[in-house]
Design a protein around this nucleic acid. Structure first.
Length: 272
DNA sequence: GTCCAGGCATGCA
DNA sequence: TGCATGCATGGA
C-alpha cells in the first residue's frame, strides 16, 4: 500500500481485499451512509469522513494526516494483510466460495462504547430498525459534526437520560438496559482498555456481567469493538449456518473466526 | 391477523 | 446446568 497526502484528501494506492459496500453495510456498523456518487460518509469518534474506492485506490476526503494516523488507519485496518487471512480461511472448502463471492469484507475496529450500545439495541431486532434507532439516538443526543452528520453520544451524555427517554427513541424493552449501561460506563464501572488487554474468555466474562449483555452481544462487542478477531457471534442467522458445521469449526478459523463469521453471516442473510 | 429480527433476564426443574 | 416464557417495535 502507498499513501499520498493531497491537501484535504488522502489517497491510498494498491489497497487489497477491501469492499466498502460490503464492509460498511454488512451488519457490523450501522451509521455509514452511501452517497449518490457511491462514496460513503460517516462519523467515527466524533470525526467526519468521506471515503470512496476506485479499483485498488482508496480516497479519504475532508480529512487530515492526523485523523488518518489516529483513527482511519486502525478503523479500516489498512495495514492488516486481509489477502493472507482470506487465503487461510479458504483452506476450509465450505467457506471458500463464500469468501470469493463476498471478497473484501473486513472487520472494522470500531469504538468500544458505540459498539456496546449498538449491539444492546440490536438484540431481537432487525438491521433496518437498528439503524433507525441509532440514527435517532445520535440526532437527539449527539453533536452535529457537519451538515446532518452527528457524533455517537458519549456515555456521560446518555447517563443523564431516563428509561423513558430511551423508550422515546423506539428502543422498546431494551431501554432499561441502555439506561443502566450508560450510567455504568459513565461512572467508570466498566474499563474498556482493561477488557481489551484480557484473554478472550476473561474479556467475555467481564462483558457478561453487564445487565442486558448476553453471549451474543458480548461476542459482537468483542469482535467489532474490542479487537478480538476470534470472537464468534452466533445469532439466528449463524445458527442456521452452524448446521453446515456439525463437527465444529475448522482449524483454519483459529484466531480469525470472527472474520470467517462475518462472511458466513452475510452469506446466510442473502441465501437462507 | 401472524411471524420475525445480529437475545436477554428470569424462574423453575 | 438447561429449558420455557415474556418482552417492544415495525415490516413482511
Amino acid at each position: 500500500m502507498n499513501i499520498k497526502y493531497d491537501s484535504n484528501d488522502i489517497i491510498l494506492e494498491n489497497v487489497k481485499c477491501l469492499d466498502l459496500d460490503l464492509t460498511l453495510d454488512c451488519g457490523q456498523a450501522f451509521r455509514w451512509v452511501k452517497n449518490k456518487d457511491n462514496s460513503w460518509s460517516g462519523v467515527v469518534k466524533g470525526v467526519y469522513l468521506n471515503i470512496s474506492k476506485n479499483g485498488d485506490t482508496v480516497i479519504l476526503r475532508n480529512t487530515t494526516k492526523e485523523s488518518y494516523e489516529n483513527i482511519w488507519k486502525d478503523y479500516f485496518d489498512f495495514e492488516k494483510d486481509y489477502t493472507a487471512i482470506c487465503n487461510t480461511l479458504k483452506q476450509d472448502k465450505l467457506i471458500a466460495p463464500t469468501v470469493d463471492e463476498y471478497y473484501g469484507i473486513r472487520i472494522l475496529n470500531q469504538d468500544s462504547w458505540e459498539v456496546l450500545c449498538s449491539f444492546v439495541i440490536s438484540q431481537q431486532n432487525n438491521i433496518k430498525r437498528i439503524k433507525g434507532i441509532i440514527d435517532r439516538l445520535c440526532r437527539t443526543y449527539g453533536d452535529e459534526i457537519c451538515d446532518g452528520y452527528f457524533s455517537f453520544p458519549s456515555a456521560e451524555k446518555l447517563s443523564t437520560l431516563t428509561v423513558e427517554d430511551f423508550e422515546a427513541l423506539g428502543t422498546g424493552y431494551r431501554a432499561k438496559y441502555l439506561e443502566k449501561l450508560s450510567k455504568a460506563v459513565a461512572g467508570g464501572a466498566i474499563d474498556f482498555e482493561k477488557i481489551k488487554a484480557l484473554p478472550l474468555d476473561d474479556a467475555r466474562k467481564e462483558l457478561l456481567k453487564i445487565y442486558g449483555v448476553g453471549i451474543k452481544v458480548a461476542n459482537c462487542a468483542l469482535l467489532f469493538g474490542f479487537g478480538f478477531y476470534d470472537a464468534f457471534p452466533v445469532d439466528v442467522w449463524m445458527k442456521r449456518v452452524m448446521a453446515y458445521y456439525p463437527d465444529g469449526l475448522p482449524q483454519c478459523f483459529d484466531g480469525i473466526g470472527g472474520i470467517a463469521q462475518q462472511y458466513l453471516f452475510h452469506w446466510a442473510r442473502n441465501n437462507l
